[in-house]
């Protein structure tokens, strides 16, 4: 695994709702800017190729992972790793809320959102099938795991990635802002709380990338952040501002944390599996 200092680009992006081609054009411009600044990875938010409030538009905008639109991203990924979100039509024609990771000229990973929110203002289960696979993959940043939006609010998913050896966590999000009574949006605090806990106790870098802009009155907060294995927020983007941010991360901080704090070594995964397989208390 490579250690050392790396520049990553966080695109706190505002998509054009339901316009794949314009979003692809805009993505390519952002990627070119990131390449100019020698970033090694650029991350866009959830559903960045399409926008969030798609509803029936999902059927028109879903693409298969072998689509020709991805050719330009493959080409650009010879110079920079790229992550974005899109509506995926799988081989069986079912539709997923997915991310794509491009590196070295290839599409190396598709991740499908597992925990689809379906309450209050959310209706993702109406339009998407939930994913069922959680596998970290090798990149220049380590064993990389991806979680999409609400996935990140389930410590069990982050823990499963930790168990499977992930040490670099990318979380892409479309979190609608809500709660205006405190210092900042109350919805935002929960993302940072989760990020700080995962990065510290699972010894990972956590990169959380949230979108901005409004769709039918839903505002998306931005406030993308990076938290490090000391549990510190080392970068926080402003709320509501569309921009491309560059963050220096030092992977040796992570590697040191893994050696010294040794949470991975001292965890007993077999015991945890046994605890869970013993069943719930009320079953006894």
């Amino acid at each position: 695994m490579d250690s050392g200092s790396k520049v990553i680009a966080i695109s706190q992006y505002k998509p054009i709702l339901g316009d794949l081609e314009k979003n692809i054009e805009k993505h390519i411009k952002e990627i070119e800017k990131a390449i100019d600044k020698s970033a090694e990875l650029i991350i866009f938010p959830e559903l960045s190729l399409t926008g969030y409030l798609l509803r029936d538009l999902v059927y028109d905008i879903a693409i298969e992972s072998n689509n020709p639109y991805f050719d330009s991203f493959k080409k650009l990924s010879k110079k920079i790793d790229i992550v974005f979100g899109f509506v995926e039509k799988a081989k069986d024609k079912l539709i997923y809320n997915s991310s794509a990771y491009f590196s070295g000229g290839k599409l190396i990973n598709i991740y499908r959102k597992i925990r689809l929110p379906n309450f209050g203002m959310f209706e993702e289960k109406r339009f998407f099938k939930a994913g069922d696979d959680l596998t970290p993959f090798k990149t220049d940043f380590g064993n990389t795991g991806i979680l999409i939006c609400r996935d990140f609010l389930f410590p069990s998913l982050a823990y499963s990635l930790f168990y499977k050896g992930a040490d670099f966590l990318i979380s892409i999000s479309n979190s609608p802002l809500r709660g205006v009574e405190g210092e900042e949006y109350s919805s935002q605090k929960m993302w940072e709380d989760a990020g700080k806990v995962y990065s510290r106790f699972f010894s990972m870098y956590v990169i959380y990338v949230n979108r901005v802009g409004f769709e039918d009155g839903f505002g998306f907060a931005g406030g993308s952040f990076v938290s490090d294995p000391d549990g510190k927020i080392v970068f926080r983007a402003p709320f509501l501002e569309e921009n491309l941010y560059f963050v220096n991360i030092d992977l040796s901080v992570r590697d040191k944390a893994r050696s010294v704090y040794a949470y991975y070594r001292d965890e007993d995964f077999e015991q945890i599996k046994r605890f869970i397989s013993e069943g719930k208390n009320e079953d006894k």
Binding site: V180, E181, E184, Y185, F214, G217, G219, F239, L240
Partner: peptide, 20 residues
């Protein structure tokens, strides 16, 4: 029922700008 007026102003100004 308390609101952070600064945050509300910022949000509503962005809302109007964006949605118009």
């Amino acid at each position: 029922m308390k609101i952070n007026s600064q945050l509300v102003e910022k949000t509503l100004v962005e809302f109007l700008k964006d949605e118009i």
